[in-house]
Design a protein around this nucleic acid. Structure first.
Length: 350
DNA sequence: AAATTTCTCAACCGCGACCAA
DNA sequence: ATTGGTCGCGGTTGAGAAATT
């Protein structure tokens, strides 16, 4: 038994709205408001439309002061910055862009911005994987990283590499996603979204290997195992560093009874730290030689690995070890801003 | 000029959250 | 605590437009 429909599907019109329907809906809402009930609204007006459809039409199109198209560079920056920080939470992103709807921003991101920033992925990936076992990998059906997460990783890495193309991942501890550019920082402060948005994006999708496994792989002569090892370290460090944001920006909050309590963000931070410590201190999972040959854990990483391949290709031309997840130290904000602008404009920094 | 492919974006859909009874 | 109705969100679809062959 499925979910009950919100309206009589057989008796409602679907598809594009006519100007008459628009006029009816607009006139009514401007006069009387929505009445707090979208489902009942179409009947009151005499529209053969689903209440949801009316709501969508009003919010995305008829509502006053709605802007369509013509996104400015500043808006591009904000969207990109927030997407990297919080992912596809379009309503939150839209709230920062007056006159823009979540639907508009979502469409704009999916059809233009994303391509502008990640456009070369397909080609590079194809080059890298031609003749490989990609088909077999995909047939495993294991996709531990969401597309959103991968895109955010790619964007972040792209930015980081622009900032420091000669950086080597092996010599420096990764900062991602702790190190935000100034726009991101501003956004994060303004929105106070730290509690959720800067949670490590891979928490739900990635189970880190034990330190013993990571160490074992690091010593391995198998390049895949080495790669897995370094990726593990990067991701785990990224998770841990991301919690740094929460620590820095979280505060104690005063309850209604006057008592001071740690904020929700801080509590989440502590909980996550506890989880990480438990994972990282799991000594029982020390791998055996036989288990290593199976190398099953690498399957879990292939989504991330593939997404990173294209990226490293992009910058090999400029740097021998540019597939870094990191940047050095504290970045000069002005320089970061300029490079960020260039990135968003789709230009390569030489 | 026609056919085909790609792009855009309005609209739909399903699900989880929320709230009132 | 449960149930039913509604809201709001994010992913997806598909028709029309634009670009390419």
């Amino acid at each position: 038994m499925g979910r009950a429909p919100c309206c009589d599907k057989t008796n409602v019109k679907k598809g594009p709205w006519s100007s008459e329907e628009d006029a009816k809906l607009k006139e009514y809402i401007e006069k009387y408001g929505t009445g707090g009930n979208w489902i009942a609204l179409p009947q009151k007006i005499g529209l053969k439309r689903c209440g949801k459809s009316c709501r969508l039409r009003w919010l995305n199109y008829l509502r006053p002061n709605i802007k369509h198209g013509g996104f400015s560079e500043e808006e591009d920056n904000i969207i990109c910055s927030l997407y990297i920080s919080i992912g596809s939470r379009w309503s939150i992103i839209a709230a920062q862009l007056p006159g823009r709807t979540d639907n508009d921003i979502k469409n704009y991101w999916n059809t233009r911005l994303k391509k502008k920033l990640l456009g070369r992925r397909k080609q590079s990936q194809a080059n890298r994987l031609s003749g490989s076992s990609q088909d077999q990998k995909e047939s495993n059906g294991i996709e531990t990283l969401s597309n959103s997460a991968i895109e955010r990783l790619q964007l972040h890495m792209q930015l980081q590499s622009l900032e420091n193309p000669n950086f080597s991942q092996y010599d420096n501890p990764p900062m991602w996603p702790c190190k935000l550019n100034p726009i991101q920082e501003k956004m994060m402060q303004t929105l106070q979204l730290v509690n959720e948005s800067s949670n490590p994006l891979m928490m739900q999708n990635f189970s880190p290997a034990t330190p013993q496994k990571v160490e074992y792989y690091a010593q391995s002569s198998n390049p895949l195992q080495q790669e897995y090892s370094s990726m593990n370290n990067m991701i785990i460090n990224g998770m841990e560093n991301s919690m740094g944001i929460i620590r820095e920006s979280s505060s104690l909050v005063q309850e209604s009874d006057g008592t001071i309590q740690p904020s929700m963000e801080l509590q989440q931070c502590w909980a996550f730290q506890a989880e990480m410590e438990e994972l990282l201190s799991n000594k029982e999972a020390t791998p055996l030689e036989g288990q290593m040959s199976e190398f099953d854990c690498f399957k879990d990483m292939h989504g991330a690995k593939n997404s990173i391949c294209w990226w490293s290709n992009e910058f090999e031309a400029n740097s021998a070890s540019s597939n870094s997840w990191d940047s050095t130290g504290v970045l000069d904000h002005k320089q970061t801003d300029i490079k960020y602008q260039e990135l968003v404009q789709g230009r390569r920094v030489q």
